[in-house]
């Protein structure tokens, strides 16, 4: 149907006629309403509920030893996951973009596999590998290393789930920048390490940081896989998310809400901080 105003030939110019404006208003309203219903309202709900019993509940909850331990455990797992996925993620991204070899497209497909696995399945895989009769159980038992129902397996499953984030953020940027700048650096006398540090890394740093932010958010929030491998030993293998889960089972609803709020805020802050840094950097450059 053509717009009532026949003078307007450019759709984006917006016809003065009311029907088109009405349609646009309706579409925008529908989009906003959908997001509000799905996200904003529940977010407000949880904030309200967390503070319902009074502000003191926040302090009380956060000073409980099992809560501080849960946060500590989440922090340790997240930190190690970030280090491992960043380091190896850079290696894999570099190899995928800069090297041509048989099996490269297979390697490329393997990177996406964690997206195809339910976190629950990942946890189950760890149980099968390290539990009774597992492929690797005897190897670690003989060395006295407890993997399952302990920190190592919790780190392993979280790392597995977070592997694709850094790689998928870095690869397209690395591809886009091409080889010219790296070649230029080498002809100017830079060693491989200097080239990486002074040319490659600065070019991919925002993609890398964004990948790390996604990794952080996912590692902090992981529940399905760690729940299975942790054994849920209170005060020992309980992460922050597991604490929420068990607190709800034990009817400690207020405490669960407080911990949930802290977790959500942390993840949001990480993403916002990266976005803000990026913006500021762009602005500093355009002012130069």
């Amino acid at each position: 149907m053509s717009a009532p105003s026949s003078t307007s030939t450019v759709p984006s110019a917006g016809a003065p006629g009311g029907r088109r404006r009405l349609a646009r208003g309706a579409l925008a309203a529908a989009a906003i309403a959908y997001v509000a219903l799905l996200l904003l309202l529940p977010l407000i709900g949880i904030v309200v509920r967390a503070f319902e019993p009074g502000l003191s509940i926040v302090g009380d909850t956060l000073s409980r030893p099992e809560v501080t331990h849960a946060f500590l455990l989440t922090a340790i797992i997240t930190l190690i996951t970030i280090v491992v996925t960043t380091f190896f993620g850079l290696v894999v991204a570099w190899v995928l973009v800069r090297q041509r070899f048989i099996g490269r497209s297979f390697l490329n497909a393997v990177v996406d596999l964690p997206f195809a696995l339910s976190p629950v399945t990942v946890g189950l895989a760890a149980v099968l590998l390290f539990g009774t009769g597992g492929w690797l159980t005897d190897f670690f038992m003989a060395r006295g290393i407890q993997v399952l129902f302990a920190l190592p397996s919790m780190i392993l499953v979280t790392t597995f789930i977070c592997i694709p984030f850094t790689i998928r953020e870095v690869v397209p940027v690395l591809e886009e920048f091409g080889l010219d700048e790296e070649d230029a650096a080498r002809t100017l006398g830079a060693s491989i390490w200097q080239t990486f540090r002074m040319v490659t890394l600065p070019n991919i740093r925002w993609a890398l940081l964004y990948g790390i932010a996604l990794t952080t958010a996912r590692a902090i929030g992981e529940i399905g896989a760690v729940l299975i491998v942790s054994g849920t030993i209170a005060g020992l293998t309980e992460t922050a998310t597991i604490y929420i889960f068990t607190a709800l089972e034990e009817r400690l609803v207020a405490q669960a809400h407080v911990v949930a709020l802290v977790l959500a805020l942390t993840s949001i802050l990480v993403l916002v901080a990266i976005e803000w840094l990026h913006r500021r950097n762009e602005k500093a450059r355009s002012n130069a």
């Binding site: 010219d180 700048e181 230029a184 002074m198 600065p202």
Partner: peptide
């Protein structure tokens, strides 16, 4: 000294 067709300046 090498000069590239597409300049290859370090953009950052």
């Amino acid at each position: 000294g090498f000069v590239f067709q597409h300049y290859a300046l370090f953009r950052h």
